[in-house]
Amino acid sequence: MDHAYANALKRKEEIERELAMVNSFLDLYRHFNGPEGEQTEPRVQESLDAANNEGGTNQAARSPKPSQIADIVERVIRGAGHPLTRSEIVSRLESAGIHLNSEDKPRYVGTILWREKSRFTNIPGKGYIMADMATPYDATSDMLAATEHPDEGPDSD
């Protein structure tokens, strides 16, 4: 294959991955802030007021449910196109403005993904990937790790 052509294909893949990440960000932004053009400040203020009136904190109002986090992580992993460790996932979620209501955020994310085994595959030493994106070797290594180290649940990457 021609070197210039190969470079162009490689660059195209990089741009497509970057575009997928931008699309994920836009989806997350719309999900948490409303559709484009909608004025969101009153909604945020209403949430803060409601939390303060109930004696709660505004953290809980901004923290998505575990099922929502799993959906967001799916978009993040698909956008990346490769496995991500729990720490990488947390970093990307926080960069997108997603609040995780936990003292140990990587462990919290790991627990959520571990409970969604049908959707996510943990590749030892590499991180999580979507089950339908994993190679047969990846899927097998995840199963072998689970049988060899049954105590390694959501805390392992």
Rank of each mutant, 00 (worst) to 15 (best):
residue 133 M to Q: 11
residue 96 A to R: 05
residue 21 M to K: 11
residue 80 A to E: 12
residue 139 A to D: 14
residue 106 P to H: 12
residue 105 K to E: 07
residue 48 L to S: 10
residue 12 K to A: 14
residue 47 S to M: 12
residue 154 P to K: 15
residue 74 E to D: 10
residue 71 D to S: 15
residue 68 Q to L: 05
residue 44 V to H: 02
residue 117 K to R: 13
residue 148 E to P: 04
residue 104 D to F: 05
residue 68 Q to K: 06
residue 129 I to M: 02
residue 87 S to P: 11
residue 101 N to D: 11
residue 52 N to Q: 13
residue 96 A to V: 01
residue 10 K to L: 11
residue 154 P to I: 15
residue 55 G to T: 07
residue 13 E to S: 09
residue 5 Y to E: 06
residue 157 D to P: 07
residue 111 T to G: 05
residue 4 A to E: 14
residue 96 A to D: 07
residue 58 N to K: 15
residue 8 A to C: 11
residue 58 N to A: 15
residue 87 S to R: 12
residue 78 R to M: 12
residue 91 S to V: 08
residue 68 Q to W: 09
residue 119 R to A: 01
residue 132 D to E: 08
residue 90 V to L: 02
residue 23 N to A: 14
residue 69 I to T: 12
residue 102 S to C: 07
residue 82 H to M: 11
residue 1 M to R: 09
residue 45 Q to M: 07
residue 76 V to A: 07
residue 34 G to C: 00
residue 122 N to Q: 02
residue 105 K to G: 03
residue 117 K to L: 01
residue 61 A to D: 03
residue 89 I to E: 01
residue 86 R to H: 02
residue 56 G to N: 08
residue 62 R to I: 06
residue 16 E to M: 08
residue 38 E to I: 08
residue 101 N to Y: 10
residue 51 A to F: 00
residue 35 P to Y: 01
residue 107 R to S: 06
residue 121 T to E: 13
residue 78 R to I: 11
residue 147 T to R: 09
residue 29 Y to W: 15
residue 109 V to H: 04
residue 90 V to M: 07
residue 91 S to N: 11
residue 3 H to G: 10
residue 114 W to L: 04
residue 14 E to D: 13
residue 19 L to T: 02
residue 24 S to Y: 12
residue 73 V to C: 11
residue 32 F to A: 00
residue 150 P to Y: 00
residue 123 I to R: 02
residue 44 V to C: 05
residue 20 A to D: 03
residue 149 H to D: 11
residue 104 D to M: 03
residue 80 A to K: 05
residue 96 A to S: 14
residue 144 L to A: 10
residue 36 E to I: 08
residue 55 G to D: 09
residue 118 S to G: 05
residue 68 Q to C: 09
residue 154 P to E: 15
residue 109 V to I: 11
residue 45 Q to C: 10
residue 63 S to D: 04
residue 59 Q to K: 14
residue 78 R to T: 10
residue 17 R to W: 00
residue 129 I to G: 00
residue 77 I to P: 01
residue 133 M to H: 08
residue 93 L to R: 02
residue 38 E to Q: 14
residue 93 L to N: 01
residue 25 F to Y: 10
residue 13 E to W: 02
residue 84 L to Y: 09
residue 72 I to F: 01
residue 85 T to K: 00
residue 15 I to T: 01
residue 138 D to R: 02
residue 124 P to N: 03
residue 116 E to H: 05
